[in-house]
Computed example of a mutant assay.
Amino acid sequence: MTDVLIEKYEALVDIRKYLIKKGQARYKGTVIKTKLDEANYIFEECTKILLLLDKGKDKKLVPAALDIFQNIKNIFEEINSLCIFPKNKSVKMEFDLKVACNLLPAMDGIEATTKRLIDSLEMYADMLDEKGKTLLVTFVLKSRLSENAKLRITGNYKSIEELIKDMRCHLLTKKSFMAIQTKLLHLQQGSTSIEEYGTEIERLFTELTLSQSEGNSDTAGILKPLNEKLAIKQFSEGLRSSKLSTIISARNYSSLKDAIQAAKEEDTTSQSLSASATATAAARN
Score class of each variant (00 low, 15 high):
V62F: 08
F177P: 10
S241N: 03
L121V: 15
K174D: 05
M178N: 09
M178W: 11
K35N: 12
S270A: 15
E130Q: 09
L172Q: 08
E111R: 12
K57V: 15
L135D: 10
K8P: 03
I153M: 13
L61Q: 09
M93G: 09
L230W: 04
S274E: 15
S276H: 14
T154M: 12
L97T: 15
L135S: 11
L223Y: 11
E237S: 13
A262V: 03
A262C: 09
R144N: 02
N71V: 00
I194L: 11
T278V: 13
E94D: 07
S193Y: 08
L210I: 08
D58F: 13
N71A: 01
L136W: 12
T268V: 14
D267V: 01
A275H: 09
T199E: 14
R284T: 15
L230H: 06
K243Q: 02
T154H: 05
M167Y: 10
I164Q: 02
M93L: 07
S241A: 02
T138Q: 00
P86C: 01
I164C: 03
K142Y: 02
I20T: 09
E10Q: 14
N252K: 15
I68K: 06
E94T: 09
L82P: 03
P105E: 03
K55D: 15
R251P: 01
V13Q: 03
A125C: 11
D218W: 06
L135W: 14
F139S: 05
R144F: 00
V62N: 05
T182E: 08
T30Y: 01
D129C: 03
N74D: 11
K131C: 08
K8I: 05
Y27T: 13
L66N: 12
T154V: 12
L145A: 07
G132P: 00
L256P: 04
R152W: 02
H186C: 15
L12K: 07
I6G: 03
K55M: 15
P86A: 02
F95R: 06
E45L: 02
I153S: 12
F69H: 11
V62W: 12
E7G: 07
E78T: 11
G29Q: 03
E38H: 11
I222P: 04
A277D: 08
T47E: 12
V4P: 06
K229G: 13
Y9G: 00
